[in-house]
Computed example of a mutant assay.
Amino acid sequence: MISRNELRLLPWSGPEGKPCYLSTDDADGYLSRLADNTEAVQLGLADELLEHAPEVLGDGTAEPEELRLLAASLTGALRDVLRVATSRGHRLSAPEFGDGEEDGKGPLLPAAAFG
């Protein structure tokens, strides 16, 4: 199981683009809430950008500069979303095996979990 006070990858970079981390066991602390809000904003902006991209790409008259701006914006959004996904993935607790799951195949899910 992952420790609650494991370092959290924050949704912003430090100087020279280096990752920033938070060491806390208080998920309701100021920096944790700020990180949660920043992640929500980043994911929302990425969603809006994905809605806008087909309009630009579908416009046969889009100028090269407009396409470069779209590519740069999509690149930044993808970087942010990957950072959020990495951070959240590291904070997931690993499943504990038991009840006949010691064979290493992982937890068994009911068929209903798959729709």
Results as ranks from 00 to 15, higher is better:
E6Y: 04
L7M: 15
L7F: 07
R8A: 10
R8K: 10
L9D: 11
L10V: 06
P11D: 10
P11H: 02
P11Y: 01
S13H: 10
S13R: 12
S13L: 11
P15V: 10
P15Q: 12
E16P: 01
K18W: 05
K18G: 11
K18C: 07
C20V: 06
C20L: 14
C20D: 07
L22H: 01
S23F: 05
S23D: 09
T24V: 05
T24W: 00
T24R: 05
T24Y: 01
D25L: 12
D26Q: 12
A27Q: 11
G29H: 00
G29K: 02
G29Q: 07
Y30D: 09
L31A: 08
L31W: 03
S32Y: 00
S32L: 01
S32C: 03
R33I: 08
L34Q: 11
L34T: 03
D36W: 00
N37K: 06
E39N: 07
E39H: 00
A40E: 14
A40N: 14
V41M: 13
V41N: 13
V41D: 14
V41C: 11
Q42P: 01
G44N: 12
L45N: 12
D47I: 02
D47Y: 07
D47P: 02
E48H: 07
E48V: 07
L49I: 08
L50K: 15
L50C: 13
H52K: 15
E55Y: 07
E55R: 15
E55I: 08
V56S: 11
L57Y: 04
L57W: 04
G58V: 06
G58L: 06
G58W: 01
G60I: 03
T61R: 14
T61Y: 05
E63M: 05
P64F: 04
E65G: 01
E66H: 02
L67V: 04
R68D: 13
L69S: 11
L69G: 07
L70A: 08
L70V: 02
L70S: 04
A71V: 05
A72S: 15
L74R: 04
L74Y: 00
L74G: 01
G76I: 02
D80N: 14
D80Q: 13
V81T: 13
R83Y: 00
R83D: 08
S87L: 04
R88P: 02
G89D: 10
H90G: 08
S93Q: 13
S93P: 01
S93M: 12
A94M: 11
E96G: 09
G98S: 08
D99V: 08
D99T: 06
G100L: 08
G100E: 11
E101I: 05
E102Q: 10
E102N: 12
G104M: 05
K105E: 10
G106D: 10
P107E: 10
P107C: 14
P107H: 13
L109A: 10
P110N: 08
P110Q: 09
P110C: 07
